[in-house]
Design a binder for these strands. Sequence first.
DNA 1: GAATTATTTTA
DNA 2: TAAAATAA
Length: 741
Amino acid sequence: MASGVLFDIDFFEPHIVVYLLEDDGHFWRLTTPFAHTVYLWGSRRELPAICRLAETSRVVALSGWVTRLEFYSNRPRRVMAARVVRQAGLKELYRRLTRSCLSAEMYDSTLDPAQAWLMARGLHPLARVVWQASRGRLIHIQPLDTPWDPPFAVPPLKTLHLRLEQPTSTPMVQNALRIEMDGRRDSLPLRRPEEVIRGLNDWIQRADPDVIWSREGDGAIFPWLVEQAAGLGLPLTLDREPQALHRRVERTGKSFMVYGQVVYKAPSYPLMGRWHLDEQNSFFLRESGLEGLLEMARISAIPVQRMARSSAGTALTNMEIRNALLAGFLIPSRKTQLETPKTALDLLRVDKGGLTYFPPAGMHEQVAELDYAQMYPTIMLIHNISPEVINCPCCPGLQPVPATGYHTCTRRAGLIPQTIRPVLKQRASYKQLKRKAATPAERRAYEQRYSALKWMLVTTFGYQGYKNARFGVIEAHEAVTAWGRESLLRAKEYAEDAGFSLLHALTDSLYLVKNPPFSDESLTGLTERVNRATGLDLALEGVFDWICFPTSKITPNLSAATRFFGRFASGEVKVRGIFLRRKDIPHVIRTAQKEMLEAMARCKTIAELTARHNEVLEVFRHHRNRLQSGGVTREELFFKLRVSRHLADYKSNSPASVCLRLLARRGIQPQPGQSVRYVIVDRRASDPLHRYLPEPLASERPCYEVSAYLELLQAAYDELAGELPCHWPDMAKRTHQLRLF
DNA sequence: GAATTATTTTA
DNA sequence: TAAAATAA
């Protein structure tokens, strides 16, 4: 018996390949035969035909009748088990079955074989395991931990870093590949492809890294390597496999719509036996680092490289599938449309999001902010909200959901609550561990895992309303927001009972004032009362010395519901929605606004803000001078935009369409969902193509329109100071001015 | 293989 | 009015 960590797993039909890191550092590649099982079902009339079709397809081999539970009805169902003998043919078989037999269903068929193997053995990526092997064959393997044993340690990993020396917009022949590992580095010019491929093979062979950590590996480096290697007839030995593998070149990724926005996903180049992680092509790596990614891989049982390129929704679906399988349920291959028909009136009543109030515009002193912690996930947990139990036939009228006419089940525990319960618990335990961490590195690790779980929980709610979610129905989504609105209103009511008045409220947070000023005890009393009534966790976020809700630009008498900034009693500032939070605004402007706000945050009262306003003006003048004298770098001047469509589909001369046209001339074609950075060059130029300049071209004409940036600086200032009595109007010169940088 | 709605502001 | 951005 050997012990260590389950590093990775792959399916290489008809074998599972398991990669293990032994405690003494030894690396193992072991195989074990595996065939995944799917379950066929259909109406009594069609079932014989379904089985016959399946049998003759030679994609599966029928292995006998078994009984499993149907997920939505919770009733036993007789199904025909079938061993998959040709995984690649499964999708086509499913299509043929459903085409010729309307009632046909092939349960468990969307499970990835490697993941099915993991689930069947109670294993997960990075599990601590003991195993037995003989001549490269895995005989036995057993987990020593579960994903819910939080203080897991990441084993030491040998990491090789890959990136391009120049931005990817540079033509590849002028670029070079930078390789770095353990302080040694190399730079291979791409104009000599043969040397690059031999050089990289050499590095990998000598260093035998566990991880290849890249920047733009998926989008640029690997497609280039694979193409060149194929062209030269050279092997590319990136994998830890006995033979070099052949890969197809995939250049263009996919653009798809998510919540009305186009998202771009680069193609992916996973490796066998080592992880290729592209920090540019991974949501979790970007948002919560390697520790966060590994946490997600563990709890969702998705192999690390796939997890790196997946969304929180995919992780959630996998966790749900795992729990459903453990409970003996059949996994439907498609989303079941359970939504009951609604009248227009029902829609009007039910289909709402979170509650929004409009705060009185302007500056306010002594404001308390109260937030519900993890409001939506907690609601799903305590009210048992899940697609298969919402509006169940067994308990109508017992547990009504406020203002919806819906009800929840009192008999069957829903899959969603079961799935998020351990996540909420784990998140809480990382919060503790983070506080008690002995070293900064340890604290950082727990922070990253905590952050990954936060993303996971945010998604559980949104996913309920997602049209393609496997386990989601819109009623569940609506029930959650209904409880959310109810809980916020309850808090408002209790706050007003206790003599507070509501300044602002948004989805899960309340902003309260009290006259005479409140005490900490009165707030604690309030949160305790609310929490007893709602079962949720309302807690004090902090007390603002002052907070400002800027006036809306569209309705000048009102404030904007989603923008504010303020100073907590601790001296810390909190900011939402204003320029410095926006990623599309140039750095000069964001920095200037940040510094102006810092000057304001040194003041504890509105009177002081008024008296010391000169300090804010000084910051303003400093940045105005920088802009006027050309003392800014190009980097600080870039706007950022997300391409939403193909060049031909743009109708106006918007910055996006101008940038795409200019880039297209150089053969650069950003896909919808990718982002482009540009500088404003001259908004009044008669030729629209001279108005804006996208990133790689900006060096050719190092010029910017000073007045455009000054106007924006002025707006940034106005956003902060507009509500103060000492407003200095129009401090930016509006003369049209162009300048080199 | 892909989370949602509400809101703001600009072209 | 549509599009693109943020808050939660």
